[in-house]
């Protein structure tokens, strides 16, 4: 990989970390709760259309008869991340390995 591309990648990664961390660090000090924007969206529906009644609930919540516990929800989100990261870096690793072995003309 060319030097300029390597530099670009590092700049991008550092910028991503800063963009995520700075609002959190600043916001936490100033009392931001960092709830989901769909929670805020739900509040907005009540305000903009007070006569609207939510007519169904998520299938999973129906099945377990209540809201999904926060811990279990974060577990399931981690499962989703894990599946994605596994596939993504399995193939990327194979591509890197192939290049190192000088077999780039071969199918993965």
């Amino acid at each position: 990989m060319s030097k300029s591309n390597k530099r670009t990648i590092w700049i991008c990664i550092i910028a991503c970390i800063l963009i995520a961390v700075i609002p959190f660090a600043y916001g936490s000090k100033h009392g931001a709760t960092f709830g989901g924007s769909d929670d805020a969206g739900g509040e907005l529906v009540k305000k903009n259309d007070s006569s609207y009644k939510v007519w169904t609930e998520p299938i999973l919540e129906k099945a377990i008869g209540g809201e999904l516990p926060g811990e279990v929800e974060s577990l399931l989100f981690c499962v989703q991340t894990g599946i994605g990261v596994g596939i993504l870096f399995f193939f990327l690793g194979r591509f890197v390995e192939r290049k190192k072995l000088g077999k780039e003309d071969q199918e993965l």
Binding site: F34, G35, G36, S37, D38, G41, G42, V54, E57, P58
Partner: peptide, 10 residues
């Protein structure tokens, strides 16, 4: 926290 899509029933 919940992130965002349009929720069920909304």
């Amino acid at each position: 926290a919940n992130a965002m899509h349009i929720m069920e029933g909304y």
